[in-house]
């Protein structure tokens, strides 16, 4: 077993993370016939199998969504588990972090942790890919996600050939790094019209929860 992918999204098979992995694997398969198993970290009933797959892999890629500025708690637990293994130092490890926030900047802090984690576990760090603005890609029309999926396909093909991420594609995916002044002004204008809440309000109304949207059920004072 050469390469193993771990999907760290708590949403597992219905996750946006899975869509990115699918595109990545599409590109990977263009370059090689070698199969790449994908494990879902949230599938706790397969934990032993998952940890064995980690041990046996030569290259590990962990995809996860940004949860409260870091990896989700289940991914942290996975890191705690693999830290107990000794003598797996020569393994290569890379990460793909996606977030709902549009700016890549929000994920650069976890990137620093991931680089240090690899160093701490004496693994060969091959980098972290960051992509913001991923929430909602499941319901976006194809023309809106075409470039995103194409970039992940290219990323997968490059990885199959080189066992590392393509810096050029990674830089492209990190855009926007921060919100430009113009975008911030436009956002502020649109937010006054309610346009920026369109996605949320649509779902709230569909669930007959719109009138309750400002509820504070845990307040005691």
């Amino acid at each position: 077993m050469q390469v193993v992918i771990f999907n760290g999204s708590p949403r597992r098979k219905i996750s946006n993370t899975k869509l990115l992995i699918n595109s990545f694997l599409l590109g990977y398969k263009k370059a090689t016939d070698t199969k790449v198993p994908v494990y879902y970290i949230a599938s706790f009933n397969k934990k032993e199998e998952m940890l064995n797959a980690y041990k046996n892999a030569k290259v590990v890629i962990i995809f996860f969504p940004l949860y409260t500025d870091m990896m989700p708690g289940i991914v942290k637990e996975f890191f705690e588990d693999i830290s107990k293994f000794k003598n797996y130092e020569r393994k290569k490890i890379g990460f793909v972090v996606q977030s709902g926030f549009p700016e890549a900047y929000q994920s650069i802090f976890v990137e620093k942790y991931l680089e240090k984690l690899a160093k701490r576990l004496k693994l060969n760090y091959v980098g972290t890919v960051i992509k913001g603005g991923v929430e909602g890609i499941k319901i976006m029309p194809a023309w809106m996600t075409k470039e995103l999926f194409a970039n992940f396909t290219d990323l997968g093909e490059y990885f199959a050939k080189n066992n590392e991420f393509d810096d050029k594609i990674n830089r492209k995916l990190r855009k926007p790094y921060r919100m430009s002044k113009i975008k911030r002004i436009l956002f502020s204008i649109f937010s006054k019209t309610g346009l920026t809440n369109f996605y949320w309000n649509g779902n709230l109304k569909r669930n007959k929860a719109y009138e309750k949207r400002y509820n504070r059920p845990y307040a005691q004072k």
Binding site: G73, F79, E80
Partner: peptide
């Protein structure tokens, strides 16, 4: 492993 625990996370 360099961060607060999985329980806290």
């Amino acid at each position: 492993v360099g961060f607060t625990s999985s329980s806290l996370k």
